[in-house]
C-alpha cells in the first residue's frame, strides 16, 4: 500500500502543518512516510503546497507527480492540481473558498465547506483540520484518534483549549459522511 497525497492552498491556511500532521500520523501507525513542502519564497497569502507519501514499504520517490489524493484549499490550487490526480483518485476541495467546480469524471470529487464549518466551531483557521477529518474518513488510511495524537506532535506549544478545538474540527470532518466514530 502506497498513498501519495498533495495538499495545496495559500500561505496561512495550514497547508504545511496539515502535511506534517499526516506524516506524523503515518509514522504513529508504523508506516513509512515522506513529507516535502514547496519551500523558499513562501509567505502568508502566497501559494503553498506539499507532498506526503504514506506507505507500508520504504518510500522510493518523495516527489509526487500523480497523487492518489489531493486536498485543495483555494481556487488557484484547483486549477493546478485537478488534472494531476490519478484516475480513480480522490479530490477533496474547500467549497467555502472555491467557486469553480472540478470537471474530472474519473475521480471521486468531494466538496466540503471547510471554512464555514470551522467558523461554526468558532475559528476559521482550523478549516485544515476539518479537511483532515474528511481525509481520514474517506481514505480509511488513518484513524481519527491517530490524527488527534498527530496534531499534538505538530502543535507542541499550543494550549489545551486550541488542541481540543482542533480535535472537534477533526471530528466534524470525520462525521460529515456517515457515522462519527
Amino acid at each position: 500500500m502506497t498513498k501519495e497525497i498533495i495538499i495545496s492552498g495559500f500561505g496561512g491556511q495550514g497547508i504545511v502543518s496539515s502535511g506534517i500532521i499526516l506524516a506524523h500520523a503515518g509514522l504513529i501507525e508504523d508506516k513509512h512516510v515522506t513529507f516535502f513542502p514547496s519551500y523558499g519564497a513562501e509567505m502568508r497569502g502566497g501559494t503553498a503546497n506539499c507532498s506526503v507519501v504514506i506507505s507500508s514499504e520504504p518510500v522510493a520517490s518523495p516527489i509526487v507527480a500523480s497523487p492518489d489524493v489531493v486536498i485543495i484549499m483555494n481556487e488557484p490550487s484547483l486549477a493546478r492540481f485537478e488534472l494531476a490526480v490519478k484516475p480513480g483518485g480522490l479530490l477533496l476541495y474547500n467549497q467555502a473558498l472555491i467557486k469553480s467546480k472540478p470537471k474530472r469524471k474519473d475521480i471521486t470529487v468531494i466538496p466540503i465547506k471547510a471554512n464555514v464549518l470551522a467558523e461554526e466551531l468558532g475559528q476559521g483557521r482550523i478549516a485544515n483540520m476539518v479537511m483532515l477529518g474528511v481525509f481520514a474518513k474517506k481514505t480509511g488510511l488513518l484513524s481519527l484518534s491517530t490524527l488527534k495524537n498527530a496534531q499534538r506532535k505538530r502543535y507542541k506549544k499550543a494550549n489545551d483549549e486550541q488542541l481540543v478545538l482542533n480535535d472537534k474540527a477533526l471530528e466534524k470532518g470525520y462525521s460529515l459522511f456517515g457515522n462519527s466514530k
Binding site: 513509512h32 513529507f35 516535502f36 513542502p37
Partner: peptide, 10 residues
C-alpha cells in the same frame, strides 16, 4: 541537495 534538506522523514 535542497530536497533532502527540506524533506521530512523518520
Amino acid at each position: 541537495d535542497g530536497l533532502l534538506g527540506q524533506m521530512m522523514e523518520a
